[in-house]
């Protein structure tokens, strides 16, 4: 069984929009969702549909995984890459990538994205945060006024 699995050379990931990515097994090691799929099959080649992840996002995630799976890259180079990676993402990308990381069950990428999202919403207004996550306020006008007052105090 173990020998068969190690013989898998290429894994094909199919994104929601039909775009196809061929990657080496070590790249998907962190994607627990994909990994459990592979474990169930005993074929030499596998193709895995990922209906919750778009091609653009999957391309970014694979890029991240490649960099972090590489043994030649130094710690500093990886940190530099992370920094640039976050800078490159637009606000909405971050939320979608976080959802993808959650779906793919990728622990360290999840942590990475969680930090990015937290940084995105810190120092922002209540309206920005609501808008960003598409949350409607369910407070009464009185409660709103009270919370606004507390916020003014918090940033005095």
């Amino acid at each position: 069984m173990a020998a068969e699995k190690s013989s898998i050379k290429i894994i094909t990931l199919i994104a929601a929009d039909g775009s196809v990515f061929e990657v080496e097994p070590n790249i998907v090691k962190e994607m627990k969702t994909v990994q459990s799929y592979i474990d169930e099959l005993d074929q030499n080649t596998v193709s895995i549909p990922l209906p919750n992840v778009f091609g653009n996002d999957l391309a970014m995630i694979i890029e991240y995984c490649k960099k972090h799976a590489s043994e030649e890259e130094t710690k500093e180079a990886k940190e530099e890459f992370d920094f640039e990676f976050v800078k490159r993402m637009k606000s909405d990308d971050k939320l979608r990538l976080l959802q993808a990381a959650s779906y793919l069950n990728m622990e360290s990428f999840l942590q990475f994205m969680a930090k990015a999202i937290a940084a995105e919403i810190e120092n922002q207004s209540v309206e920005f945060v609501r808008d960003y996550f598409q949350i409607e306020s369910d407070f009464t006008p009185e409660e709103e006024a009270e919370l606004r007052k507390e916020n003014e105090w918090a940033f005095k």
């Binding site: 969680a114 937290a118 919403i121 209540v126 409607e136 606004r148 507390e150 916020n151």
Partner: peptide, 20 residues
């Protein structure tokens, strides 16, 4: 929770005002 708990304490009053 993993995301929101990483927001610094200073901004918790903002998070509290988002929804119940």
């Amino acid at each position: 929770l993993l995301c929101l708990a990483r927001v610094p304490r200073k901004y918790h009053s903002v998070l509290k005002a988002v929804s119940k």
